[in-house]
Design a protein around this nucleic acid. Structure first.
Lengths: 129, 129
DNA sequence: CAACCATATAGATGCTTGTATATATAGACA
DNA sequence: TGTCTATATATACAAGCATCTATATGGTTG
């Protein structure tokens, strides 16, 4: 573990270490070294997707459900909002890369992407233990 | 550690465990049990404060700086944005409870609140290790 | 006091977003 | 084929937000 702490060759962007810009897992924790502009631009949308109360609850409903997966029909019932609104929020979470989507017959299931969640958590909380 | 896993008396809100609604630290991790509406409403603003690329970088600049503290003057220089814009973002982070503010002479210093960061991280990533 | 520096506040503007209603798609089944 | 159910898309609108310029506040120093 703690592979994020390995030293990486500095790039031209002012000293922030930057490897694969597409993946949160390669950012060292906030507390260890400042995010580069590119890194921040990649990570922010993930947090933005989680920053709505409805989406946060959707995320936790899915994550805490059996196998980390839940049917849309169950999710709709948990809220006092219209079905298209829930569908919209699920789309946001899916497009952000936090939820996987799979259709099985008439029903659609969303599943949590645990690795992404873990990466975000270690970005925020890494180096504090 | 892992004090978040202790069983709590269920409340009337449909099974989600809920203690002090004012503090993130008492929410059990997303993956363990679904957030209540009240919990989600409390946590979401923290994530929203972090969900902007500029604020994410500000946060990490402060957090990774000596003593987890940095002077506004240094922060302004790190961005291509107007001084009031940076001031605004710092205010958002401060009001969300992520940064402490202290004035010393002419200068203002913002300091990271490590415990809040740690609480958010364990909310998101707890139960995945 | 006056000039100056560091930071915050006020107000304006254009873009984003959360929500709703109406409609489309598409699988199941009679 | 036609109808029902599950989910998504289209469109619209009010509210929120990131940014700017202009200005205020308040400490420092000549």
């Amino acid at each position: 573990m703690s592979k994020s702490f390995v030293e990486l060759p500095a790039t031209e962007n002012g000293g922030a270490e930057e490897c694969c810009q597409d993946d949160v897992s390669c950012c060292s924790p906030l507390v260890i070294s400042p995010l580069s502009e590119a890194q921040a631009t990649h990570v922010a949308p993930l947090l933005k997707a989680m920053s709505d109360p409805v989406r946060l609850r959707l995320l936790s409903l899915v994550a805490a459900h059996e196998n980390g997966e839940a049917c849309v029909c169950e999710l709709n019932d948990a809220f006092d909002l219209s079905q298209p609104t829930i569908s919209h929020h699920l789309k946001v979470l899916h497009e952000a890369g936090l939820l996987d989507r799979s259709k099985r017959g008439t029903w659609v299931y969303y599943a949590i992407k645990r690795d992404v969640l873990a990466d975000i958590a270690s970005l925020i909380g890494g180096g504090l233990e």
